[in-house]
């Protein structure tokens, strides 16, 4: 199925609906994992809005992404507890290791790096979450090692 056909299918329930921008974008992101340019333009057409309007809404919410997510999503908690326990240095280390800024994805689409607000596991601070696995009491060394493991296992 081409991207065009896939979008048509996902957007069908929202066609011509008023006030459906966010649900439509959520549906598209769920199906594609992100919002490519074509998704914005097809969503705009379906809702009889301009691409600019859709883009404005999509960029407002942190939830929407414009790049394909990496194979592994690495999240570093930047909540108060993690912050005082040194999470900024972990972010710096991983940014350097992966060669990207937080919020970006590596060129080989292996890793995406994100900073999140509070994960709610302050007792384990500083916390790193890779996909659905939680790693507590992180240090820069441990964080590097963990990513190496993900790098090696396909």
């Amino acid at each position: 199925m081409s991207l065009h056909e896939q979008l048509a299918l996902v957007l069908a329930p929202y066609r011509g609906e008023k006030g459906a921008t966010i649900p439509a974008l959520q549906a598209v992101q769920k199906a594609l994992g992100y919002l490519p340019e074509e998704a914005i333009s097809e969503t705009a057409k379906s809702l009889c809005l301009s691409e600019n309007e859709i883009y404005g809404v999509a960029t407002f919410y942190a939830h929407f992404r414009f790049e394909k997510e990496g194979e592994h999503m690495v999240r570093i908690c930047s909540g108060t507890a993690c912050h005082v326990r040194g999470s900024p240095r972990i972010v710096e280390t991983l940014e350097e290791k992966l060669g990207i800024h937080s919020g970006e994805t590596t060129k080989d689409h292996k890793f995406s790096l994100e900073r999140i607000a509070c994960f709610g596991s302050c007792a384990l601070a500083p916390v790193m979450v890779v996909d659905k696995t939680i790693y507590g009491r992180m240090t820069t060394t441990k964080a590097r090692q963990i990513l190496d493991e993900y790098q090696d296992t396909k």
């Binding site: 600019n52 309007e53 883009y55």
Partner: peptide, 28 residues
């Protein structure tokens, strides 16, 4: 009714712009 420009991003990063920062000529 042209909706050629809009608020993009949020908070301190907010800036008036077009979809994907395209030139106005391509934004309607």
């Amino acid at each position: 009714g042209a909706t050629a420009i809009t608020f993009t991003q949020r908070g301190i990063k907010t800036v008036i712009g077009t979809a994907f920062g395209r030139p106005l000529q391509e934004s309607g």
